[in-house]
Deep mutational scan, measured.
Amino acid sequence: DETGKFLVLSLYDYQEKSPREVTMKKGDILTLLNSTNKDWWKVEVNGRQGFVPAAYVKFL
């Protein structure tokens, strides 16, 4: 199980638009929880879990 094993870097600021999403700032290091959807990845940032656009992050 690779859940929570990968870190990704936020390339852009992102403001959550729904309760299922999370806000991140450019340069944030996020824990990747799920990347099965090619468009939206589930991450943990600042103690919160939610989705961010996959195009806004990259693997470290």
Rank of each mutant, 00 (worst) to 15 (best):
D1C: 15
D1V: 14
D1Q: 14
E2H: 15
E2N: 14
E2T: 14
E2C: 15
E2Q: 14
E2M: 14
T3H: 14
T3E: 12
T3L: 13
T3K: 14
G4F: 14
K5P: 14
K5G: 11
K5C: 15
K5F: 13
F6A: 12
F6Q: 14
F6V: 15
L7W: 10
L7D: 04
L7T: 08
L7R: 09
L7H: 10
L7E: 07
V8R: 02
L9V: 15
L9N: 02
L9C: 11
L9F: 08
L9K: 09
L9T: 09
S10P: 03
S10I: 08
S10N: 03
L11G: 04
L11C: 11
L11S: 04
L11H: 03
L11I: 12
L11K: 06
Y12D: 08
Y12H: 14
Y12T: 11
Y12V: 13
Y12P: 01
D13P: 05
D13W: 05
D13T: 05
D13L: 03
D13M: 03
D13Y: 05
D13C: 06
D13N: 07
Y14G: 02
Y14F: 08
Y14P: 03
Y14H: 04
Y14E: 02
Y14V: 02
Q15D: 15
Q15G: 07
Q15R: 08
Q15W: 12
E16M: 11
E16I: 05
E16R: 11
E16D: 05
E16N: 06
K17D: 06
K17L: 09
S18R: 08
S18W: 06
S18T: 12
S18K: 07
S18N: 12
S18P: 03
S18V: 04
S18M: 08
S18I: 04
S18E: 08
P19K: 09
P19S: 12
P19T: 10
P19A: 11
R20N: 15
R20P: 05
R20G: 15
R20D: 13
R20S: 13
R20K: 12
E21G: 12
E21Q: 10
E21C: 07
E21S: 06
E21Y: 06
E21K: 05
E21D: 06
V22T: 05
V22E: 00
V22I: 15
V22R: 01
T23M: 04
T23N: 06
T23C: 05
M24P: 00
M24Y: 02
M24L: 08
M24Q: 01
M24E: 00
M24V: 10
M24D: 00
M24N: 00
K25W: 07
K25V: 09
K26A: 13
K26H: 06
K26E: 07
G27F: 03
G27N: 06
D28S: 07
D28R: 02
D28Q: 13
D28K: 03
D28E: 12
D28P: 01
I29K: 06
I29C: 07
I29T: 06
L30G: 08
L30N: 01
L30K: 00
L30S: 02
L30C: 11
L30H: 02
L30W: 02
T31M: 12
T31G: 05
L32Q: 00
L32E: 00
L32T: 01
L32P: 00
L32W: 02
L33G: 00
L33N: 01
L33P: 00
L33M: 07
L33A: 02
L33C: 08
N34W: 07
N34R: 06
N34M: 07
N34P: 03
S35C: 15
S35W: 15
S35E: 06
S35Y: 11
S35N: 13
T36P: 03
T36E: 14
T36C: 15
T36M: 10
T36F: 10
T36S: 14
T36H: 11
N37P: 04
N37Q: 09
N37I: 05
N37G: 10
N37M: 08
N37D: 15
N37H: 11
N37K: 06
K38L: 09
K38R: 11
K38D: 11
K38H: 11
K38T: 09
K38G: 09
D39V: 13
D39E: 12
D39F: 15
D39K: 12
W40M: 06
W40G: 00
W40D: 00
W40P: 00
W40Y: 07
W40H: 02
W41D: 00
W41Q: 00
W41V: 09
W41R: 00
W41E: 00
K42R: 10
K42F: 15
K42V: 14
K42Q: 13
K42H: 11
K42N: 06
V43Y: 00
V43Q: 00
V43R: 00
V43W: 00
V43F: 01
E44P: 00
E44V: 07
V45W: 06
V45M: 10
V45L: 15
V45R: 10
V45Q: 08
N46P: 03
N46D: 12
N46R: 10
G47A: 04
G47K: 05
G47S: 05
G47R: 04
G47V: 02
G47I: 02
G47N: 07
G47L: 03
R48T: 07
R48N: 07
R48Y: 06
R48Q: 08
R48D: 04
Q49K: 10
Q49I: 15
Q49G: 06
Q49A: 12
Q49Y: 07
G50P: 00
G50K: 01
F51W: 15
F51Q: 02
V52D: 00
V52C: 03
V52S: 01
V52E: 01
V52H: 01
V52A: 02
V52G: 01
P53F: 05
P53D: 03
P53G: 03
P53Q: 03
P53C: 06
P53T: 03
A54G: 04
A54M: 04
A54K: 07
A55R: 14
A55N: 13
A55M: 12
Y56H: 08
Y56E: 03
Y56P: 00
Y56S: 11
Y56C: 14
Y56A: 12
Y56F: 13
V57D: 01
V57R: 00
V57H: 00
V57S: 00
K58W: 08
K58P: 02
K58N: 08
K58E: 15
K58Y: 10
F59H: 10
F59V: 15
F59Y: 10
F59M: 14
F59L: 15
F59P: 13
F59C: 15
L60Y: 11
L60T: 07
L60K: 04
